[in-house]
């Protein structure tokens, strides 16, 4: 008897630069709509926010590298469980709850984002060659 893994298995896609259909829409119709994907060797996390929009951002938190696959899907974005850094679907950091009151540091922090859209029943991503960060 196999137990369903709590984090979906990674999806690996290698393709030339351009728009590529990476998954069917149904793939994200799971209780926790988050899937790790590796596009041309770049480790990313695909998720759907509370507005129903898609995010496709770097998998490791820019703070200290924690794995955002285990992030909290809340407040219309993805929140790292290590220190609560919160990212919107574009990868922009919008909150750092442990930083001193009034700190503007979050504005200077953004996880690289891969363009992503839904059409024709599929999820499409704009791939770049290799790891360009």
């Amino acid at each position: 008897m196999t137990q369903q893994t709590p984090i979906p298995a990674e999806e690996f896609i290698d393709a030339p630069t351009g728009w590529v259909r990476i998954l069917d829409r149904e793939a994200l119709e799971i209780a926790r709509p988050l899937i790790p994907v590796v596009l041309n060797g770049q480790r990313l996390v695909l998720f759907r926010d509370e507005e129903g929009e898609l995010g496709l951002i770097g998998r490791n938190c820019p703070h200290r590298g924690a794995d955002l696959c285990y992030g909290r899907l809340e407040n219309n974005g993805l929140r790292c469980p290590f220190h609560g850094w919160h990212f919107d679907r574009t990868g922009q950091c919008v909150e750092q709850p442990a930083e001193p009151e009034g700190s503007p540091m979050y504005k200077a922090i953004k996880v690289p984002m891969t363009p992503v859209e839904e059409r024709d029943g599929g999820i499409w991503a704009f791939l770049k060659d290799g790891d360009t960060t």
């Binding site: 703070h63 285990y70 442990a98 922090i109």
Partner: peptide, 21 residues
């Protein structure tokens, strides 16, 4: 354990962004 192992075998500090905390 999750937090420290999830960074990778050796944390890649070329990608680290520390805060004042």
């Amino acid at each position: 354990q999750w937090a420290v192992e999830g960074m990778g075998r050796i944390q890649n500090r070329t990608r680290e962004h520390l805060g004042r905390s």
